[in-house]
Design a protein around this nucleic acid. Structure first.
Lengths: 204, 204, 204, 204
DNA sequence: CATGAATGAGAATTCATTCAT
DNA sequence: TATGAATGAATTCTCATTCAT
């Protein structure tokens, strides 16, 4: 009887893949890339090491995929807000606040995905993450400038600066090491306010 | 004849130390911390491995020192500007512009020192770098708020955001692939303008 | 087909472990702990270096296990004799003679396991060896004193002295250069006679 | 003016040599051979590393000499007692007691010199130490047998056993690790009594 | 001659990847 | 097909010895 890749097999394959990705993400969230070794992922995902290599050609690919997945999810959320209608200012505020709040809740994961490179391939994914986030922001800025809400400015540079301010504000040194040191909402407010002043050139 | 640590010897020692530090910095600038192994530093500095361990107790110490040295130098420059007299706005502009211009010239080094952690000890040095830079910025903000140039704001958060915007603007993905992709002066202008709008809440 | 740790695999694992232990013991017997480096053990056991670390957490653990294994075996043999019934004197004689004869046959190994420390962890195992041997001897002494065969004496000190006399007699300098220099049986006789006189306080 | 090795120079050379030896001995006493590195000896002796190599061709030679020196001194003391007149029994008791008491006072040094080999060359010196000690003991035994105090016995084996009992009794496992666990005098009494019973074949 | 800086061969350990079962 | 045991290149650090000053 020839081997048939049945639906059942297909489903197991997919669920294995997801579980591996999820476990990898969790390990990164707990101990950064440093602690996320293939063997550890395999053990926690309850699959064999070899199985990981069936789904991902290399460690770098696995973790690049981890970053991409988080990126897709988070940028997707921001995108949806960015593309919702209405004036640019509240839209930007909403997007930034949502992103920041979620990042604060994710604890160390955000820090690792944002600031802790490891392999070049993972780095690329990280950069893509930031770039995609920037592109989403840039969309709002473009709209706001068109609509006269924001002054003329170098949109790409501003978007990058917003991303930087956002991430650094969240994981930066002034927010005590690694954890949300100060009460989150207030910090998020300050960051959002900073960015809004920056792109609008007006107080509030 | 008893051994005398002559000036010549002293000079050689110092120059060895400097050469090791410089080589380490260069290797980091070229390939990130990943490429900067002790053996590689030794080879390129044309000293034995043991010599490095005469000057630095461990690999982590060596690279922490690399970061510290750059930090001291760059933050020192910013500090001097921050502490010069006059209104806060041009002072902040000057500080940011100077830092940014220098960082752009340093190429990948800034990226590595800012965004690529390695050993925990090096990480700490990197965090100190950002914190020190933030503190310098915060000083100007404090002054500006006192002087009524800037609106009331969370100074620590703003300073972190400025640092983030500055660094991300410089090394971020929108400045293509780690190198000075766009003409530098224009990018620096955009970043500085962004930060000034953010802290002042006014266009210009 | 899910991976099954078959009996065959199990057997290979166990035999690898044994081969590694055996090789380590052999290397120690040939050249002392100095010659027994992990790489050498791996090469001679025809396994990779990593395989050794799959079976033993560290070099110290491996060699501690080597000592422990020999200790368990040899002390076990002595214990069985010590716990057999009958008067203490022949029991002690039998125990000492058996131990000594076996040690003489093992050549340099006894010397290394007895006299050559290396890592603190291995040292501990070695001390345990001597202590266990001493405890076994002390048991016979206790019995003999109760039975009136031996005079009252400091049992712990006597046991240690017996162990010392035994080991030194075997591997000591008077038995030329670490090997069985003199004809074994006569040496064993002399050592046993010495110890019996010492604990009994009577000739023969 | 040709270089003349004046008396003054000669004296300094000799005193340097002594200081190096003394320092080495002290370091061994404090931390065993493991802690006694050439650089440490040089530093503590307040000479350059090179100076040590002027006096001793290698590390092994230096420490072999350390062992030899201690050996000469201690064996000398025992020898003198051994060669004093009078019956063998009190002479042996005196020799053993003196040696044991001194060893207990020297703390870890005795242990290291007796039980902690390092380099083969040092090992040889250690073996010579034990052999010389044994020879000294053997002299007393010979005399005692001649005089009819002791029964006929294998003198070399007995001497080795005495040395073994003595050393093991002192540094062995029953005397808690490394330090004089039990009150020294009582332990020395027990060891001496053990040895006297062993060589005399009669209760003491 | 004394010095101590420089050297670099070694040694232990880690972990991504492979492949027999 | 899944598994996880085996692998060994790579990396950090130590320390006896040499030799320019």
């Amino acid at each position: 009887m020839p081997y048939r890749r049945t639906d059942k097999v297909e489903a197991r394959l997919a669920s294995d893949r997801e579980r591996i990705l999820g476990t990898a993400r969790q390990l990164v969230a707990e101990g950064g890339f440093r602690k996320a070794q293939i063997a550890a992922v395999a053990a926690m995902a309850e699959v064999g090491v070899g199985t990981i290599y069936r789904h991902f050609p290399s460690k770098a690919d696995l973790f690049a995929e981890v970053v991409s997945a988080v990126s897709r999810r988070e940028v997707g959320i921001v995108d949806r807000i960015a593309e919702s209608g209405g004036p640019a200012t509240p839209r930007l505020a909403d997007a930034l606040r949502t992103f920041a709040t979620r990042a604060l809740r994710s604890g160390r994961l955000a820090n690792a995905l944002i600031a802790e490179p490891a392999e070049p391939a993972v780095d690329e994914a990280r950069l893509r993450y930031r770039r995609d986030l920037g592109r989403s922001i840039a969309g709002i800025l473009d709209y706001g400038i068109q609509a006269g809400e924001f002054p003329r400015q170098d949109v790409d540079a501003s978007a990058a600066c917003v991303v930087g301010a956002l991430l650094e504000g969240l994981v930066g040194p002034l927010a005590p090491s690694g954890q949300i040191g100060r009460d989150g909402p207030r910090l998020v407010d300050a960051i959002v306010a900073f960015c809004l002043r920056a792109v609008s050139g007006s107080p509030a």
